[in-house]
Each structure stands twice: as structure tokens, then as C-alpha cells.
Design a protein around this nucleic acid. Sequence first.
DNA 1: AAGTGGTCTAGACCACCGT
DNA 2: CGGTGGTCTAGACCACTTG
Lengths: 242, 242
Amino acid sequence: MADLIYKTIIDSLKKEINQNQFPNMKLPDERSLAEQYDVSRSSIKRALGTMAEQGIIFKKRGSGTFINPLYLKQDSYFSYSGKNLGITDSYQINGQKPGIKVLNFDVVRPDAELQDNLFLKPSEFVYSFKRLRLIDNVPFMIETGYIPIKLAPELSEDIASESIFNYVESELSQEVNKTYLTISAAPSDDEGQQLLDLAPTEPVGMMEGIFFLNDGTPFEFSTMKLHYKYFKYGSFVDLSNR
Amino acid sequence: MADLIYKTIIDSLKKEINQNQFPNMKLPDERSLAEQYDVSRSSIKRALGTMAEQGIIFKKRGSGTFINPLYLKQDSYFSYSGKNLGITDSYQINGQKPGIKVLNFDVVRPDAELQDNLFLKPSEFVYSFKRLRLIDNVPFMIETGYIPIKLAPELSEDIASESIFNYVESELSQEVNKTYLTISAAPSDDEGQQLLDLAPTEPVGMMEGIFFLNDGTPFEFSTMKLHYKYFKYGSFVDLSNR
DNA sequence: AAGTGGTCTAGACCACCGT
DNA sequence: CGGTGGTCTAGACCACTTG
């Protein structure tokens, strides 16, 4: 799974953090870790740097490296805080099983907004599909997706009933590795109340995003409505150098 | 401003990109850049890596480094990719004037959770305040904040009625430059319905976050309830290396 | 096969923190 | 002052893409 040194270290440290192996919230210093793992300090720096970006830890020059207390409090059903996201395996909730039910699957013409979002000409068709996602048979998200047929000519309802992104990676030897997400909240509509079993006073979390391939090609435009109890998005934001 | 090598390179490359110095959308290879700038390849990698995280460029192993066409389009997609956020100036929507009304301002003992979040001993007091924020006199956000008195001894209701972060930067010569945000949705409660003028079926967007100073010191814990119509959070996410 | 980005090392020197 | 993270170098070797 993780034969890269820095990833191995990240996994290892995460595990230790989650097991409360650092009760004073402080990690060993970088030089010690380098010795402990028998790798160079640079590799440690890479691992810690990535973890800091993800908000798991933060570093204080002159003092040391500390665990972000908020990271330990990921109480809700699932949280995004970094890893994957919006995609099948990101709903990795303590071994509970994700499910997908395809509600519809068509080919349509993109409207103006969609043409913009996916860099399409009006003449280029897109697959349009709606999926209901479940955790342990509990529906928690309604997903509406659009993918240009030229980018995935063989897409089918069968594929949509599993992981589209896995299909892209295994069959098209491309990778979906970037996304621009817009997050908001909205009252639940009829569809949401029915499919997600919500009361009229209960809202949905909305995530709207464009997913990009390796090379920057916009691959999918997706709108996700999530049951608010299952919706928690964590984001570590660096307000400097931008 | 940018006496760091990698930052200098980022600035320089950004400028060149914006001036269309790379008409084929491809940057020189890393080794050439290293020679050109007379720095090590590692520094070039650091610069390019940061730019890739920000979505400005894409790297393709074996092929080269390319400019993200969306970055050149400079439209709304990248409006978030950095500066500010969730804080005063980020709600600067077309010159509308932000307002702040301080609902209360006290000094209290932190509870256990807050002690954790702000790295405090039980004996250390915090300022506790609630503010209503407005755009063009329309209330859109209820903010509850906690700041350790030791970090801002002179904090006052007056300061809270303007920008606390500006105060930190001008008076304490520190900078708030990182935050870990947790975003979710929730039904509106009585307070929200009253202050934000919401119907019972209308929700709030929730943002909970710890704001950090330059040196990693947790400075403020803040809970923000936003009128759902004014709540939109954008985030560019890199799904690789995680 | 040549070109290009990815990972990793070993070590130097700097800047900041706390005692 | 010693300890800690930050930046940078020089170079090795690997993995992927393209011709």
C-alpha cells in the first residue's frame, strides 16, 4: 500500500496519534524521528510537512511539532479532513460498507453552465446520472454527475453503480487527482426529504465540484446533497503566501 | 518580501505565466530552470510543487510541467485559492460594507474542550464574545469567539467591534495565517432564526475553527453560524499524495 | 534510448524558542 | 546556550512518457 518512505511514515505517525501514543500532544523532534525510522531528516520533513498541510499537526519553529487537537475530535460519522474526498473510498467509516444505487443514467446535451464548467462545445454530449449513496444501507447522499462522453466513451450504468473513478484509473489509465469544490447549505427539497429521510426543517449540505484529471482536463461536474448529520468537511487553510 | 529562493521563483514564474511567456502552456523542465535561476533542482521542485498544490500548474511525470488553463481564465474558479477567508475581508462582496455588532463580551474560564483547542491550563482565562456580522446592514453571521487573555491582554469590546485580526497584526506584530476549519450544516435554532431572520425550515452553515498565529500558537477558537444564502465555501483540493 | 518528474540521502547553515 | 524547525545544496537512482 505504501511503499514510499514518506507515506509509510505518515501512516505510522497517524496511527500512533490516533492511538494516543503522544499524550502530551508533542511529537519527537525531526532528527530523532529520522534516526528512529532510519531515514534522512528530509524524508521526515516531507512526511511532517504533508501532515501539517492536512492539518493533522502543526510545527512551531524552535519548539517542536504538535498534534492538532481538532484532528483527534473527528467524532462525526465521516470527516474529510484531507484524505480523498467526494469519492467512493473516502467514505471509509470504520469498516462500514458503502453502497451505490443508480437512480438514472442518460446522455444529454450540456447546458451553458455545464459547457463552461467542463470546457465543452454545445455539440458535445455528456453522460448524466443520479446516484444515491449509502452507508450500511442508510442513504446519506444524492449525487448528480455529468461526464463528457468523449472522455469516457464506455461509461455505463454498471460502471456507475460502482466507482467511476476507479474505472478511470484502471481502464483509462488516467487519474482524478484534483477538484475544485464549492460547499454550502440549503433547506431540503422534496427529493432530499424522501431519499434521505429528512424532516422539512432538516437541511442538506451541498458540495458542488469539478473533478480534474492528471493533465488538468475537467472530467466531471458533480452536485452532491448530503444528509446534514453525515456532512462534515474539514479543511486546513494556509492564509500566507497566496 | 520574498527573499526566500522558492518564493522568488514562484513569483517570477507566476509573472511569466500571466504575461503569456509560455505560449505552448509548457514550462521548461526542472533541470533547465535550476540552471536558469542558478539554484538547485530541489528548490525548483519546491516552487513547482507549491504552485501545483495551488492549482496553477500540473506536473506530468515523463512529459513535463504545464500551466492549468483555468488559472489563466482567472474567473471565479480561483477566487478562493488563498487569501483571507471566513474572516472580515473575505465577505467583501462587491464593495458592500461589512458591519459588526458585539452582542456580548466577557472573560470566562475555558471548559475542557476549549482548553484542548487552545492549549490552555484550566487556570488560564479567555475572552468570550459573540458578534453579529452584517453586510449592507443585513445580518448574515453569528460568531462566537474565544481568545486567551494572555495572547491579547488588551483586547476590548471596542476592538472586537472592528477587526480583531487587524489589531493582532498592527498591535501585536503577529499574524493569523493558518486555520483549521470544520464545515457543516444544521437546522437553525431560535437564536439563528431571530438574529439572521430565518424561517424554521431554513438552515445555517456552520464553520468551526481554530485560528493559528505565525508560530503555530492557537489564537482563537471560533464558531460561526451563517445564513445559508450567504454561505459558500470554495476549496481547491489535491487528491494525490494522501 | 533520451528526457522528465519523483523520491531519497547527507549534510550545511540559518532563525527562533526556551532555559 | 542547546534544541528545534526552515531552507538549500549536490547528487544518486527510480519510474514514466515519448519518439
